[in-house]
Design a binder for these strands. Structure first.
Lengths: 227, 227
DNA sequence: CCAAAAGTGTTATTTCTACACCCATGT
DNA sequence: ACATGGGTGTAGAAATAACACTTTTGG
């Protein structure tokens, strides 16, 4: 394939290319989504998903990571990042045609402190199941992301990405419950998870109170995702 | 929200926005995908998914339908059209940064004849499970589309979109088998489908040979899709 | 009456769900 | 000793998978 090709045809539609990121984490046993308060442009002071324009030569995944970094002033390192859906409706952004590729990110436990960054008044982890009103079509994006997260629990072992490398089964169950937004039976949960063979036990651990829980790690062979 | 807003910032990355469409239909009991032979640009004469640049003010779905129409010279009317994935890798198109939003389309039975259209040497329905080599990253797109189609069989009753309004259970089973690329048990298939309650019987019908089969239609209440 | 495709039931296996008590530790 | 959370088994229900013969039509 030649390296110099004719440029794009003159009738090529040019648009702004952006990413928006629905980044999830578990805090206090609750599923939270990272939201920022807009500091400029339309929907000033409204809550929104972190997002922004893609730079030239930048891949979508890179842009997503950069945006997270810039708008939270934190070195967030998602354990999982996948594309969700592309929102390209003609009127979705009042500034012109902006095509936004929405992403789903999963951050591990321990990702707590965030603060506002560039062009943003503040950043916070807020309830994913009961979010505040959001700017643009971000409520749609969040709903998509939540639905995707739930179906991914079955297929991939995405829940592990919310936890540190070593974790207990009750902690893992807590992740499932936070994402599915309902209680699960302890015995059935353990049976199912252990039967999958994706967990391997290690040493022990004493939590604050009660009987110490067995620690587990992900087994060697673990699918990352599919679909 | 004001109707006149500042234009996009000067640092906005502008890109070409395109759609590619993986359009499926069943022919001769086999799952086929609509492919065109490129008549210009890179990958001349290679097989590719129908696709092209989005026009200004045009929605992605509109562009997908237009592209199908233009490149087959046929008034194809998909029964189902959904967004699949956005391919935006920096080097994927040698002409510059082109972001392509891939779509999955389902065409009903009877959609047979296609011919080449604008900028295309020819169009054909070819085997979806054993396609010829494809231009650009279209083999990836096709693989994604096929996987999505298979999971959609479970959730939605997408199989109905491949058939005319009235159809027999053996025909429906044939659609499942063509998509899943394996044989299914007749009795179990009937049990499961009828238990779902999405089919309602109507009159009879005599095929060429053998016992006539009961005709069914979709019941009133039918989910179209999800996820 | 023969070929061809449609239609129909039962059983074994697996998976899912509901449910209550004992165990190990820290205080 | 007691409060706290971790850990375990069983039985009924539901879903799934395997399997072979009869029925209706056209020729």
């Amino acid at each position: 394939m030649p390296s110099t090709m004719p440029p794009l045809p003159a009738d090529a539609l040019v648009v702004g290319l952006a990413v928006d990121v629905a980044a999830f984490a578990i805090h206090d046993g609750e599923l939270r989504v990272l939201l920022v308060q807009r500091g400029e442009g339309p929907h000033l002071r409204a809550w929104a998903l972190p997002g922004g324009l893609v730079h030239p030569g930048e891949e979508l995944a890179e842009a997503s990571l950069r945006v997270l970094h810039d708008e939270t002033s934190m070195d967030l390192e998602p354990r999982h990042l996948e594309q969700l859906h592309t929102f390209a409706e003609v009127g979705r952004d009042p500034r012109g045609r902006v095509v936004s590729v929405a992403h789903l990110a999963v951050l591990p436990h321990g990702t707590v402190a965030v603060q506002g960054g560039n062009e943003v008044l503040g950043a916070e982890w807020l309830s994913a199941h009961n979010p505040p009103p959001l700017a643009f079509d971000h409520a749609d994006i969040l709903a998509h992301a939540l639905a995707r997260l739930q179906v991914r629990l079955e297929y991939a072992n995405l829940a592990l990405e919310f936890l540190p490398e070593a974790f207990t089964l009750p902690e893992l169950q807590g992740v499932y419950e936070a994402i599915l937004n309902r209680q699960l039976d302890k015995r059935n949960f353990r049976k199912k998870l252990l039967a999958q063979g994706v967990l391997t036990p290690s040493g022990e651990r004493r939590s604050g109170v009660g009987r110490p829980a067995q620690l587990y790690r992900r087994a060697k062979h673990a699918r990352t995702a599919a679909l």
